[in-house]
Design a protein around this nucleic acid. Sequence first.
DNA 1: CGCTCTATTGATAAACCTCAAATACAGTGG
DNA 2: CCACTGTATTTGAGGTTTATCAATAGAGCG
Lengths: 232, 232
Amino acid sequence: MDTNPHQSDSLHQSEIFIGLTREQNAALLKEGRSITFQPKSILFHQGDPAKHCYLVNQGRLKLTKLNEQGREVIIGYIGAGELTAVTALFKNRNYLVTAESLEETEVIGWDKPKMIHLIHQYPDIAINLLGIVLERIDDMQHRYLEVCTEYVDQRIARSLLRLMRRAGSKTRDGILIDIALSRQNIADYSGTTLYTVSRTLSAWEKNGWIKSGREQIVITNPHALVQFAETG
Amino acid sequence: MDTNPHQSDSLHQSEIFIGLTREQNAALLKEGRSITFQPKSILFHQGDPAKHCYLVNQGRLKLTKLNEQGREVIIGYIGAGELTAVTALFKNRNYLVTAESLEETEVIGWDKPKMIHLIHQYPDIAINLLGIVLERIDDMQHRYLEVCTEYVDQRIARSLLRLMRRAGSKTRDGILIDIALSRQNIADYSGTTLYTVSRTLSAWEKNGWIKSGREQIVITNPHALVQFAETG
DNA sequence: CGCTCTATTGATAAACCTCAAATACAGTGG
DNA sequence: CCACTGTATTTGAGGTTTATCAATAGAGCG
């Protein structure tokens, strides 16, 4: 582990450190192990005997699930300051999610005994963990509602808006989603097919709501998209 | 494990008490407030300013979400020993779920300051809470995968099996799901319509896989259902 | 027995997927 | 700079799944 004396801003902002003293903060970092992954590597695979949870320090991860027939669903994208695989720490079973790095990605990993020990020392860590995990539940429950009750194009709109909020950066034309997103990716994130995504984006491009290129989306009229997502 | 002679069995089994000493157990119960609800009452409604989490002691709750158009989705059914609305404790925002009692239901409620205080005293409580909440995430993520990738009748099969595992009781004919379940309920739990559920159940009744009555399901051939859920 | 709520079933239509084929794009090496 | 290759994207035609609508039948309850 590189006990990094000048820790990066992204880590400071992470929800897991909220309200901790400098001392607690340092203890948490000291117990973790830093690992760096090249782009498109698999951090852990669905079904692997996972024993660590990971905090992203730099880079971005795609979290997916596969069903028996090999069809993929994207659970989410996470970036600096976000956690994944908390399940692996508190459940004696495999975490049925796959994590893949999109860019060069540095994570800090903690194993179960260390995290349990830390929590006993500093219970606020557990409270922060609960906050993070509960956020994930709310998101998942809401997306579940959407996929059960809304039309495909509404869901695509919500997907783009969600990704925009997580990874949007302002440009001259509008808000660029800062993740390489193929039509297939958007489909996997929205529960549909790449063909339907392509048709839908084409229509929105005609409306002037978005500009899209190869694996790239710029949202030029977020308000129209929000409107559409809510009313259909 | 330590046992409290005065505490009911359902509470003993609850995951929130795992590994706690008798003293910790008692403290947890002392800080909670017991409330009893008549059948079909609303414990809390989506959007209410919720400030408590609830542990079911006796009875059963239906947890639902509504979208803007009023379409309902059933997030889950929970019974004795299970928790809900943990979000209300750790997030300063409303819990966007509705909880309705199906029978006469007794719950124990904790508010935020009390629970935070308890966790600081006994960090194991937080670890147990994490376990409970993570379980819910896994379930939700898996159902999300299903609703995105599987056919309606597969999802209905999985719904029945899931409910069977949570609330099944053996009878002469097979395994009875011990919840009053209308076709509409099954539809809301599976992300489809009552008509499709009705057709599907009729077909399975012809196959001899289930027996169904008014708001009642008996699974006579679980193995066939499992097989069907996995292969389609 | 009449009332209300639930369930069944057929006909129809809408939403969406699948397949196929063509086109656009980015990177590579000549 | 350009052709080449592999991927990503677009678009049309056709089919499947599933929702919707409408009408009827059944179950429980006072």
